[in-house]
């Protein structure tokens, strides 16, 4: 089970007119892996991620996500993945409970399943006191944790996290990563982008994109050896500065 590839990408390319945003990237992600997807602003991370979650059609290349082809079955991909981004998380003007019910409904969960999931969530995250509060009134850290759990409501095979911890306080950031570990331990693959280089070290494997290409891909330890660097931050700086 562990060795099965849940994401397979080969020579994936996306062009916008003359501009090549993503240039023939290839990689594989195993089931239950925490895969860090790093790169400078404008390196093509977001474009690549959009192709993988089935909302942008690649110009050329091949990609299989959760067993489905990004060209042929983008709709099936969407059913089998969870997605959370810093920009869009939850509806601020709905309560925590209403958000959970709404997103559960979107992913086709039955009322009973939603009810069960919600109780579980409330229990795990300790939401008893805030379940009926408007999401807008909660601190950012809470929002991000709840939004991550909501992305997992339908037990997706892969969860895509786009800068999930930006601006979050250090303690909550760590609690968030503990949730990520737990998710991966339960067999869900985690695909995550971040600007915190210490978080790159938490990943099983890390890829670094520079100008549309993947310039490095390995475990953090091996990358540090390869680039003769002490931290991932140095690896990143050496790579991106050329």
């Amino acid at each position: 089970m562990k060795s099965k590839n849940v994401i397979k990408v080969e020579n994936l390319t996306k062009k916008f007119g003359d501009f090549t945003a993503v240039n023939k990237i290839s990689f594989k992600v195993k089931t239950g892996e925490i895969f860090g997807f790093l790169g400078a602003n404008g390196a093509g991370k977001t474009t690549a991620m959009k192709m993988l979650i089935g909302i942008s059609i690649p110009t050329s290349g091949d990609a299989q996500v959760a067993g489905f082809d990004v060209f042929k079955n983008p709709e099936d991909i969407k059913k089998n993945i969870g997605y959370m981004s810093q920009k869009f998380a939850l509806y601020d003007d709905l309560t925590v409970k209403e958000n959970i019910t709404f997103f559960g409904g979107i992913y086709g969960l039955s009322r009973k399943q939603i009810e069960e999931k919600r109780c579980l969530l409330v229990e795990e995250l300790g939401l008893q006191d805030i379940v009926n509060e408007l999401v807008g009134s909660l601190p950012l850290g809470w929002k991000q944790k709840i939004s991550f759990s909501v992305a997992l409501l339908h037990n997706p095979k892969i969860v895509f996290l786009d800068e999930p911890t930006g601006g979050v306080d250090p303690i909550t950031r760590r609690q968030f990563w503990e949730m990520i570990y737990k998710t991966a331990n339960n067999g869900t693959t985690v695909f995550v982008t971040t600007h915190y280089m210490d978080e790159a070290e938490y990943c099983d494997r890390v890829s670094i994109m520079v100008d549309g290409k993947i310039e490095a891909l390995d475990t953090p330890t091996k990358l540090k050896e390869q680039f003769k660097a002490d931290t991932m931050n140095d690896v990143f700086l050496k790579l991106a500065r050329g």
Binding site: G39, A40, N41, A43, E163, G166, G167, H195, M197, N233, F236, L237, A240, R241
Partner: peptide, 10 residues
């Protein structure tokens, strides 16, 4: 430097 990559931050 919020949301800016490590290179530009440095």
């Amino acid at each position: 430097t919020t949301g800016v990559d490590p290179v530009s931050r440095k």
